[in-house]
Design a protein around this nucleic acid. Structure first.
Length: 470
RNA sequence: GGCGGUAUAGCCAAGUGGUAAGGCAGAGGUCUGCAAAACCUUCAUCGUCGGUUCAAAUCCGUCUACCGCCUCCA
């Protein structure tokens, strides 16, 4: 039984899906006005890891994540770059897909965009107005937050104690048009020469929160299993989504709310964010480091914990990732001389570790405990790989168990086809030199290969090589 | 001011009453022509003060520090 921490109840709950063996989940995606930074990547990776674990446990997962392709930042950024907003969206959606592929995130089942759902958004708002939950004011439409009794339930805020302006992001002109300062915009009247759609309230564009209510319920139904996002979205974004959706449908919106922790930077462990300007984009980072390392760092930290992004944490991740990969290489290398009998002690230990893994991950996706099991599995197969006699079927079985566990964390363990002719030639020459005990020549050749990013390993079964992770 | 989170070895980090998982780094060793990879050994009493208990990192209270949210944010 998978347990997960539900922000709504602030407790770990047994996960019982709406439909047996199926999980419907919606995760708030990025506003596509820039490259994603590694804080955005953290959220994406966290929920990808969760999604993969559900699949590992036999669930069929319907995973919807949106692109916010219209809002103030989109409009401003398009203007600054001298292109249209749709062009801007296209550019950064493509960049998003490229970045996300680099860190081995499974594509979402659906990636709906706000601008492709304008009629649905207008219909949704119309219903809210009809039900008295929303009102028009000078071409804007606002939601009457106070009318929704459960407002504040998710973030556990008392509506009367919300300190207005504490975040220093309120727009006074907008506040003047509202009945109540805590009301929020569903529709914003156009300010002139910006992109806009016709609506019953005049020309304008949707507010931010409404798109997620519309798209999540459109693709997953009025009630669905899991709604996720960064913990900064708890209030007001998710609170508003609940208010909008439940006011419209009268049904429970999301059944479980999951929020990931932040990536922090610097000695102050300050939150990384675009507005603070202290961000590193994935686009830039993957030019310098192996994206698998970033993936590893992010998916092996439990999703609710903060991640300190430092050179040190990256180096740790790199070392550990290599350890995990090496074990797989070491194991598969023995396939070529695997003529022995299976080892039952190893088989039994492997089965137990698989159970440990499930137990760890079932507990709110405790990745630290999960990866600890992977390390133990690595040791098990390393020890096995050094046995005099090994069995081919057993190697394949261990490799499959191991790679399945590793894949939850986005680690792709594949048999590499090392068939570079030039390298093979150099390796052969070195082997010959070693056989001749001409170690000066053999060490020279090894240095040469190292320069090419090739690491050599002499084993009892012969010399093998691999590319370094740099 | 309101709400929440965190504090465990040089670093990362598990652990919610029974006497400190795991990883990185370090040290020693095995294997190797030397390496690499791997394996083995070694390395903490849990922010402060106080309390409950036969027993607390784990429960209660206190204090301190840091982080986040309170209508831009993953």
């Amino acid at each position: 039984m998978i347990k997960l921490y539900n922000t709504m109840t602030r407790t770990k709950e047994d996960f019982k899906p709406l439909v047996d063996n199926q999980v419907s989940m919606y995760v708030c995606g990025p506003t596509v006005y820039n490259y994603i930074h590694i804080g955005n990547a953290r959220s994406i990776i966290a929920f990808d890891t969760i999604r993969r674990y559900f699949e590992y446990r036999g669930y069929n997962v319907k995973f919807v994540s949106n692109f916010t392709d219209v809002d103030d930042k989109m409009i401003n950024s398009a203007r600054d770059q001298g292109i249209t907003m749709p062009e801007l969206a296209e550019r950064y959606i493509n960049a998003f897909k490229e970045d996300v592929r680099a860190v081995n995130v499974e594509p979402a089942t659906l990636n709906p965009r706000a601008t492709e759902n304008i009629p649905e958004i207008i219909d949704f708002i119309t219903v809210l107005i009809e039900k008295g939950y929303a009102y028009e004011a000078q071409g804007d439409v606002y939601y009457r937050a106070r009318k929704f009794k459960k407002y504040g339930a998710l973030s556990h805020q008392n509506i009367n104690e919300l300190e207005q302006g504490a975040s220093q992001h309120v727009d006074d002109e907008e506040t003047a048009r509202k009945e109540d300062p805590i009301d929020f915009a569903l529709w914003k009247a156009t300010k002139g020469n910006e992109i806009a759609w016709d609506s019953p309230w005049g020309s304008g564009r949707p507010g931010w929160h409404i798109e997620c209510s519309v798209m999540s319920t459109k693709y997953l139904g009025d009630t669905f299993d899991i709604h996720g996002g960064g913990e900064d979205l708890q209030f007001p974004h998710h609170e508003n989504e609940i208010a909008q959706s439940e006011a419209k449908t009268g049904q429970t919106f999301a059944r479980y709310w999951m929020h990931n922790g932040f990536v922090t930077v610097g000695d102050e462990n300050e939150k990384m964010s675009k507005s603070l300007g202290n961000f590193v984009t994935v686009h830039d980072l993957v030019k310098e480091i192996n994206p698998q390392v970033l993936r590893f760092l992010m998916s092996t930290t439990q999703y609710r914990r903060p991640i300190q992004y430092t050179q040190n944490s990256l180096q740790d991740a790199k070392n550990n990732l290599e350890k995990v990969q090496n074990a797989f290489i070491n194991l598969n290398y023995r396939l070529k001389d695997a003529k022995g009998e299976p080892d039952y002690d190893t088989a039994r230990k492997a089965d137990n570790l698989e159970k440990d893994f499930v137990q760890a991950m079932d507990d709110d996706f405790n990745a630290q405990n999960g990866i600890a099991v992977v390390y133990e599995f690595a040791r098990l197969i390393n020890v096995y790989s050094e046995k005099d006699a090994v069995n081919a079927e057993q190697i394949k079985r261990l490799a499959k168990m191991y790679s399945k566990m590793a894949s939850i964390f986005g680690i792709d363990l594949k048999q590499e086809e090392n068939d570079d002719v030039e390298i093979d030639q150099l390796v052969k020459r070195r082997d010959q030199a070693r056989a001749d005990r001409d170690f000066e020549t053999s060490d020279q050749l090894r240095d040469q290969l190292n320069q090419m990013g090739v690491i050599l390993e002499d084993t009892p079964q012969g010399t093998r090589w691999r590319k370094s992770n740099e």
